[in-house]
Amino acid sequence: MSAKFDELANPVWHALTGRQSVFAERTADGRACRYQSDVNIFAGVDQLDAAGWSALAELVRPDGVAILSRDEVPEVPRGWTEVYRGTSMQMVAAELADARPVDLVPLDPADVPEMIELAEETVPGPFLPRTIELGRYVGVRQQGRLVAMAGERMRLPGFAEVSAVCTHPSAQREGLAAALTLAVVRGIRERGEEAFLHVVDENEGALRLYRALGFQLHRPVTAVAVRFEG
């Protein structure tokens, strides 16, 4: 892929120093940043060298936790504890498949309590009170109840991430995740941007779904939750 995809190697950093800077908390020297705590859980640094870890410590503070998501995260230095480490597959939308028609509804801040409840039950990833401000979200209601949703999370120059794709167990196997994902991707493309997403490498069902929808594997991404011990 072309050089324009290079920023996807460190998406949190490029989102928070670019299109989503309004949601950023950052150090005075600008070496580290993180999403505001009620928006998202990720933090980013340009370089994970000694200066980068030191700057990150200013944001996290003793006993605080940050989640880094990028192409490589080295062993954490002294003063930090690794709480979790996992690998996700970063995928980029290519030629899209078709999806069966589904009645989708736009979601707005009034829907957030239901969105949080659905995310807590299905665990697609963290969904916080202000996550909805990061981009466009759509959902499916059955008998008035929100049973599926998807939307946008990280937004970089020329790119937007598809995220929070989830379906309540009572509505699974109806093609809702596929329809919602494709709707979000098409909305991203209407703005002239590329769509990407992340899938935990052990989630074989989701990987099969996204390949079938037209996503291609771009690179593995490491996600590490770290605690600063001070």
Results as ranks from 00 to 15, higher is better:
Phe5Glu: 10
Glu7Asp: 12
Leu8Trp: 05
Asn10Trp: 08
Pro11Ala: 09
Trp13Phe: 08
His14Tyr: 15
Ala15Gln: 08
Ala15Cys: 10
Leu16Ile: 14
Thr17Met: 10
Gly18Gln: 07
Arg19Val: 14
Arg19Leu: 12
Ser21Met: 11
Val22Asp: 12
Phe23Arg: 01
Ala24Met: 01
Arg26Cys: 08
Arg26Ser: 15
Asp29Phe: 11
Asp29Glu: 08
Gly30His: 10
Cys33Lys: 05
Asp38Thr: 14
Val39Asn: 01
Asn40Ser: 14
Ala43Met: 10
Ala50Ile: 04
Ala51Thr: 12
Ala55Thr: 03
Leu56Arg: 01
Glu58Met: 11
Arg61Trp: 08
Pro62Arg: 02
Pro62Val: 00
Gly64Asp: 03
Ala66Met: 07
Arg70Asp: 03
Glu72Asn: 13
Gly79Pro: 01
Trp80Ile: 11
Trp80Pro: 03
Val83Ala: 12
Val83Tyr: 04
Thr87Pro: 11
Met89Phe: 14
Val92Ala: 08
Ala93Thr: 02
Glu95Phe: 09
Ala99Leu: 05
Ala99Asp: 06
Arg100Ala: 15
Pro101Ser: 08
Leu104Asp: 02
Val105Ile: 13
Pro106Met: 10
Pro109Ile: 00
Pro109Tyr: 08
Ala110Phe: 15
Asp111Pro: 01
Asp111Ile: 04
Val112Phe: 13
Val112Gln: 04
Pro113Ile: 07
Met115Val: 05
Leu118Phe: 04
Glu120Met: 12
Glu121Met: 15
Glu121Val: 05
Val123Tyr: 15
Pro124Ala: 03
Pro124Lys: 03
Gly125Met: 05
Gly125Tyr: 10
Arg130Cys: 05
Arg130Gln: 13
Leu134Ser: 07
Gly135Asn: 07
Tyr137Gln: 06
Val138Gln: 11
Val140Ala: 02
Val140Gly: 01
Gly144Leu: 08
Arg145Lys: 14
Arg145Cys: 09
Leu146Ala: 05
Leu146Gly: 02
Ala148Gly: 06
Gly151Ser: 06
Arg153Gly: 02
Arg153Ala: 09
Met154Cys: 13
Met154Val: 12
Pro157Ser: 11
Phe159Ile: 00
Val162Lys: 00
Val165Gln: 00
Cys166Lys: 01
Thr167Cys: 05
Thr167Val: 11
His168Arg: 09
His168Pro: 01
Ser170Met: 06
Glu174Tyr: 00
Gly175Glu: 00
Leu176His: 02
Ala177Trp: 01
Ala179His: 04
Ala179Pro: 02
Ala179Cys: 08
Val184Pro: 01
Val184Asn: 04
Ile188Gly: 02
Ile188Pro: 06
Ile188Gln: 07
Arg191Ala: 14
Gly192His: 05
Ala195Ser: 12
Phe196Trp: 10
Leu197Val: 09
His198Phe: 13
His198Ile: 11
Val200Trp: 15
Val200Gly: 13
Val200Leu: 14
Val200Asp: 14
Glu202Leu: 12
Asn203Thr: 10
Glu204Met: 12
Gly205Lys: 11
Ala206Asp: 02
Ala206Arg: 03
Leu207Asn: 06
Leu207Tyr: 11
Leu207Glu: 08
Leu209Phe: 09
Tyr210His: 03
Tyr210Gln: 02
Arg211Tyr: 13
Ala212Ser: 15
Ala212Arg: 15
Leu213Val: 09
Leu213Tyr: 03
Arg219Gln: 13
Arg219Lys: 13
Pro220Gly: 12
Val221Trp: 02
Val226Ala: 07
Val226Leu: 08
Glu229Pro: 06
Glu229Gln: 14
